[in-house]
Simulated scan of single mutants.
Amino acid sequence: MSKFTAAFVLLLPLALAASPVSAWAVDDAPITVNVNMARVLRINSPASTVIVGNPGIADVTIQDPQTLVLTGKSFGQTNLIVLDGNGNPVADTLIDVVQLQAGTVTVYQGAARTSLACAPVCQPTIMLGDETSFTSTQVDSAAMIKSTAAQ
Rank of each mutant, 00 (worst) to 15 (best):
M37K: 15
S115P: 03
W24T: 14
V69I: 15
P120I: 10
G87Q: 07
R39M: 14
F134N: 02
G87F: 08
G85C: 03
T61V: 08
N36R: 15
D59N: 12
V21Q: 14
T148F: 14
A150E: 04
I62P: 03
A25S: 15
L14M: 12
P46N: 06
R42D: 01
V107Q: 13
L70W: 00
G87N: 06
A142W: 03
I31N: 00
P20M: 01
A7N: 08
A117P: 01
L68D: 03
P13S: 07
S133T: 15
A117M: 06
I126W: 01
K146W: 05
I31H: 01
V9R: 14
Q138T: 04
V139A: 03
S136L: 10
T148N: 15
S115W: 04
G87E: 06
T93H: 09
S48N: 12
I57C: 01
V60Y: 00
I62E: 02
F8P: 08
G76L: 07
G53H: 00
R42T: 12
G53R: 00
D27N: 14
I43G: 02
T5C: 08
N44F: 08
K73C: 06
A142K: 04
G110V: 04
T106M: 13
S141W: 06
V107F: 10
P13G: 04
R39F: 09
A91P: 05
L16M: 09
F75C: 07
Q109V: 12
A112F: 10
A150Q: 05
A7M: 07
T93R: 09
V52S: 05
G72T: 02
